[in-house]
Structure formats: structure tokens, C-alpha cells
Design a binder for these strands. Structure first.
Lengths: 253, 253
DNA sequence: AATCGATAGTGTATTATTGACACAAGAGTA
DNA sequence: TACTCTTGTGTCAATAATACACTATCGATT
């Protein structure tokens, strides 16, 4: 926990560097061992968990802010980042960093301001990320999506909204690339979809549909070592993948 | 155009009332005589056209801000409003109200600040709206979507993004209710869809699909007066419509 | 009153997509 | 060699999307 002096310093510096009243919160999804994970921060000397977040430098495009924040938390650059919603209830930041609430006069304390937060969700390869806590938190760790701790502020709402958006986007955008390692098997990819959608899919129909999109390349060599029939390895055909991203999957009308 | 004194007053008042660096821009769609329309403002003493916009009161939820702004511009309340994107390039507001640029010192002039703008799009019944200019504009009028004037700032981008979002949402949300009058014929509704999507649809298939959604009620009496066979009148079945809104149209996976 | 032109209402055959389902093949293990 | 587990693949039925043609009715025209 920061001392009064440190808080004052942080606040002064924040006011000098960042746009006031605006924050960014990131819902970072990862996929590991058949589980969808979210990156969460655990506050020092407090029970609360938070989404990784930060602020926008006075002259910085917000996409770069989100990128910068994520790089600080994961070490990753060029992450798949998708802005999905702004949360603007005046009450939402009421309980922001409660322990710092009365440590400074309101006008000086950055954390007593009202904040609109821009929600981004990110899809990252679990294995590549190296979670790093920020100065307010003791821990930055992956948590299973179906075993979440209680989240502070409106971060539970932000997370739910991100997940809903992700599920919706799955219908008209190819998602897998950012969550899967370079090479993977069809059952592994299917597991990702089943995990995101939280339902079982038919193995054969899934394969047919996925291949139908034309964004997968089958490698010559199957994955060896398992105790069963060796599955083929696939990777994304980046060219077609990008095209599919911009065009969208399903026509609709 | 405002005098220096008026600008100073506006700026002082804005700084006292609104969250700094945050604005809201609205893309208001209407539908009339087979054309999709957008509400635009024409600046006093300037060639520029702008989207209707405004700012967020210091203690106001942003949804209410958007509502308030739209009510001021259209007289309408309880509008279908959808937040769709935040535009956060530091350069985007560089040319904001150029004519007021050098009239006041930067620190005093509200319009030289950097603004992130939250984009909302609205669907309104063309006939109900009563366009009202704001104090900066000489005109507030409906413009045909396919005959747009040049837009200032990044408002062309905002409009395009809104339109793309609208087209996408058409695939998994029932849209018509907010753009159509209470009663309408199937060909009229089809025209709306064709206009939004900018392509011809098959009459019979459109009807089948629409009715299949189960959100339309057919009135007993057809519309009389036309020089041709009298078409049936339909209205939306609000209960089913609301259900469809929350559930979404198409399963996807 | 009969005809014409334009638009609205409806049905059906064809094709593509989705969903359900069963069997064969390969890799390790006993 | 047989067994178990998992993967790969094909087929059939149901459903949805598409293409397309005829009939009905209104006002206008003659």
C-alpha cells in the first residue's frame, strides 16, 4: 500500500501526464489446458481483485494506451485488442481504491475523481504472457473464468460484457489465431470454442465448418507422443485469416 | 458565430459543467421516402457540416448525456440509442471549431482541448423528429445518406463506423421498430432493409423470413388509396420484439 | 364496363447448410 | 495380438436459403 507521500506523488504525476476522468480496463483472455483464463490483479493489503487497467497519456491514441497497459502487464506487444464498450456511470468509480480515499484532499487525490473507463478485451497466447503486477497490486495472475474471485468496482460487469462480446464475435469473426499456439490440433481448437461458448460441439461438424472457412493449413506431420491416434497439426493461414477478419464470416442478408 | 465574449462565457461554463476531454457524437438515422437519412448540423459562417454532439455533465451517466443531446436536437425522448465506438486519436479534434481557435488563450478555450468522443447511433422515426440547430449551427437538417456533404473533423469516419455497425447488427437484431412508423406495409419494411444494406432483396423470401421471426402483427385492414393492390398493414409485436432484442436472432454456433 | 399497368400476395422446386450419427484407423498398453 | 482411447472421415435427414411464376386487386384509361 502506498504511503501518503507516494500517493501524492502518484496523483501529481498522473494529473500532469494523463487525461483526467478517463481510464482503460482490459479483459485479457488466455486459454490453457482446456480452460479460459482471465488476467486479474490482486490489491496489496486488500481483498479486492481488479482488471488490469491504466490511463491515457495526454497526447496518446487510446489504442496505444491499451497496448502500453497490456505490455506492462503481460510483456506482450502487438496483441489482439478490441475496444468493446465505455462504462460511464458516475457511481462506478465511487469505491475506487477505497483505502486511498481519505488520505488526501479530493482535489489532489487522483483516485477520487470520476472515471469513464474504456473497455478493451484482448486475446493472448497463455504461454507467451508473463504476468507482472503493477505498483498497486501484489499479484497479477491468470484466474479460471469459471472460478472467479469477487471483483471490485464494476469490473464484474466489464468482464461479463467482454465475454458476451467475444461470444458474439465468434459468430462472424475467426477468433482462434490469437488464443492458440502456432500449431495445434483440431480437437484443441474445438476445445477453445467449446470453452468460450460453454457448450459441447460436434467433432465432425466442427471440423467441416472450420475447414470450410479456408483459414487453416494442415501440416504434413501429425503430433506424436500421445497414447492415441496422432492428430494432425494445423496452423492458421494468415493471408486468408486476415481477409476473413475484415470481411466477416457470415453474410446474414 | 460567437463573439469572443460569448466564447469565453461558453468555455467557462463548459469547464464548470462538463467532464473535460470527453464528448459525445450522435449518428441519427431516419428513414423517409425510401431513403436513409442522417441528421447533420451546418455551422454558422463556415462550410463545415458536423454530427450532432455534446458533452457529459460532471455527474451524468453517459447514456443520459446522449439522450439529452438527442432530445435537444430532435425533440425526441426515449430514442433507440446504441453506443458503438470511442474515437480517441489525439489529432482528431485538431480542427475543432477552427474559427474559435485563436480567439482565446488555449487554457481558456474549451475547443482547443483534446477530446475523446463516444459515438452513439440512434434510430428514429423521421416524421416524429423536429430538428433543432444548436447555438453554433445555422441549420440542423436531414441529409440523404448517399448525398452527404463534406464532414468536418473525423465525422465522416464516425458516420461510416456507425453505418457498418448498423449493417452488422441487422444480422442479429431486429432493427425496424425504431425506424418505421407504427404501421407499415411489408414492401415498406423491405425498402428499409434494402436501403440500409444497399442491395435488393427478394420480395417473397424477405416476407417469409420476416414473418418467421414472429415479431410482426398483421392488421385486419389493408392500406387503401394507392393506385394498386392494397397491401396489408403490419406493426411490431412489442413483446416478441423485446424478447428477440435480448436473445438475438441467429444462433451462429 | 372492359382493359391495362402496376404492385401485392402466395407457393414450389432446387440447392446449400446444418445437425445427427457410425464406423474405420492409428498409437500406445497389457 | 487384442484392447482402449482418440482421431479422421462419410452419409443421410432436416432445415434454411435461393430462385422463380402465377394470381389478385386497385386505380387509371379507353
Amino acid at each position: 500500500m502506498l504511503t501518503e507521500k507516494e500517493l501524492k506523488e502518484y496523483s501529481d504525476n498522473a494529473r500532469a501526464s494523463y487525461l483526467p476522468h478517463i481510464s482503460i480496463d482490459c479483459v485479457v483472455f488466455g486459454f490453457h489446458e482446456g480452460m479460459l483464463k482471465v488476467l486479474l490483479l490482486h490489491m496489496k493489503n486488500e481483498n479486492g481483485w481488479y482488471l488490469p487497467g491504466g490511463f491515457v497519456l495526454k497526447d496518446e491514441p487510446i489504442e496505444l494506451s491499451a497496448n502500453r497497459i497490456l505490455k506492462e502487464r503481460t510483456g506482450l506487444d502487438e496483441i489482439f485488442l478490441q475496444q468493446f464498450h465505455v462504462f460511464g456511470d458516475p457511481q462506478r468509480s465511487k469505491d475506487h481504491f477505497e483505502m486511498y480515499k481519505d488520505m488526501l484532499p479530493r482535489a489532489e487525490n487522483w483516485f477520487t475523481d470520476r472515471f469513464l473507463t474504456i473497455g478493451y478485451y484482448a486475446l493472448v497466447d497463455f504461454c507467451d504472457a508473463i504476468p507482472q503486477p503493477d505498483i498497486f497490486s501484489a499479484d497479477c495472475i491468470w484466474r479460471d473464468l469459471d472460478d472467479l474471485p469477487e471483483l471490485k468496482l464494476d469490473h464484474a460487469l466489464i468482464l461479463k460484457t467482454a465475454l458476451d462480446t467475444l461470444r458474439l464475435q465468434l459468430n462472424y469473426q475467426p477468433i482462434g489465431y490469437n488464443l492458440m499456439p502456432k500449431e495445434f490440433t483440431m480437437p484443441e481448437l474445438q476445445k477453445l470454442y467449446e470453452t468460450i461458448l460453454d457448450k459441447k460441439l460436434d467433432r465432425r461438424n466442427f471440423q467441416r465448418r472450420m475447414l470450410g472457412f479456408g483459414i487453416l493449413k494442415r501440416s504434413e506431420k501429425p503430433r506424436k507422443g500421445g497414447a492415441h491416434k496422432a492428430p494432425y497439426l494445423y496452423s492458421f493461414d494468415l493471408e486468408n485469416y486476415q481477409a476473413a477478419l475484415t470481411e466477416g464470416f457470415k453474410g446474414g442478408w
